[in-house]
């Protein structure tokens, strides 16, 4: 399987695409409490989409502990 590198832009695009959430670039940094319609199921859906895109398994337990998209992105690209 081809492994795609996840850039910040492609990550945000994936979030917008898969979750159909109207996100601004600034939402990357926002705490989830301040992002419209965010819940833990969104995180898990995002994980599934990232895995499909990159072909790599995501450490879900760690991703769930993050409080912002930036945090998730950092875990994913660590």
């Amino acid at each position: 399987m081809t492994v795609t590198v996840l850039t910040e832009d492609s990550f945000l695009e994936l979030v917008r695409d898969e979750l159909a959430l109207p996100l601004a670039q600034s939402d990357l940094e926002s705490d989830f409490d301040r992002v419209v319609a965010w819940d833990s199921l969104q995180t898990l859906r995002l994980v599934a989409a990232v895995e499909k895109r990159t072909g790599k398994r995501v450490p879900v337990g760690r991703v769930l502990a993050e409080r912002s998209l930036r945090g998730i992105y950092d875990v994913l690209t660590a």
Partner: peptide, 11 residues
């Protein structure tokens, strides 16, 4: 189900 969804989100 997806085992991680089941474990972490009780789905």
């Amino acid at each position: 189900n997806e085992p991680r969804m089941a474990s972490y989100a009780k789905a």
